[in-house]
């Protein structure tokens, strides 16, 4: 485990190929590692470094800036409860306390069965649907204590197939078909795009005059 599987190497190469600079693929590649293993392992970071052509330290440097990347195993379900202003005004803190009590852990921790991790998070862009939470980045709006208990029961019973294990984000991946691709625009290749050159000689030259 931990280095990319053969399939994921393939995917990683495809992702890298979409960017003018390989390092730009770093965040998607770290997500791919997290999707594979549930968290980002040292071996995965070393593998990413090889594929991208940078050092493992550079990968770690980027990785540690972003809160979604976990360097240690977390629960199968990461429960993120928002306590920012809109949620705070409408019961977000109570919801967090209820979650902590129900699962018997403080925010930032994982239940001993490895099923749940609770996190207190900043605004998740569901402010009119407060209090809001996410489970593995899937939204739950206007969550009452009862809703929360039901959700936990369902997750325990394994009947929420719509929520994949921690690490998996969107279930659809972008694929650019080879015969349709325009290709990456390398910064060092300075050519005026065809449609600009033919249709207007000075479209970009108006310097904001208005």
């Amino acid at each position: 485990m931990a280095r990319y599987t053969v399939d994921n190497i393939e995917l990683a190469r495809e992702i890298i190929g979409r960017y003018p600079r390989p390092k730009s693929a770093l965040i998607p590649l770290l997500h791919l590692a997290q999707e594979q293993d549930g968290y980002v392992t040292d071996e995965a970071m070393a593998h990413i470094a090889e594929l991208v052509g940078i050092t493992p330290a550079e990968v770690l440097g980027t990785c540690t800036f972003y809160e979604m990347f976990k360097l240690e195993p977390v629960g199968r379900y990461v429960v993120n409860v928002c306590t920012n202003i809109s949620c705070m005004l409408t019961g977000g803190e109570d919801l967090l306390h209820h979650a902590e009590q129900t699962l018997g852990i403080k925010a930032g921790n994982t239940t001993s069965d490895g099923l749940f991790t609770i996190e207190e998070v900043e605004c998740i862009a569901a402010c009119t649907e407060s209090p809001a939470l996410q489970v593995n980045y899937r939204y739950f709006h206007k969550v009452s204590n009862n809703d929360f208990d039901q959700l936990v029961a369902d997750l325990r019973a394994g009947v929420r197939n719509d929520i994949p294990p921690h690490g998996t984000l969107g279930l659809v991946r972008q694929h650019i078909p080879a015969d349709r691709a325009a290709g990456v625009a390398l910064p060092e290749v300075s050519v005026e795009p065809a449609w600009m050159a033919t249709k207007s000689t000075g479209a970009g030259a108006d310097g904001g005059a208005s």
């Binding site: 979604m68 325009a182 065809a194």
Partner: peptide, 13 residues
């Protein structure tokens, strides 16, 4: 003659 790729990128918190 208009050609452009739109690449989806995503953040991490």
């Amino acid at each position: 003659d208009f050609s452009v790729d739109v690449v989806m990128a995503w953040g991490a918190g």
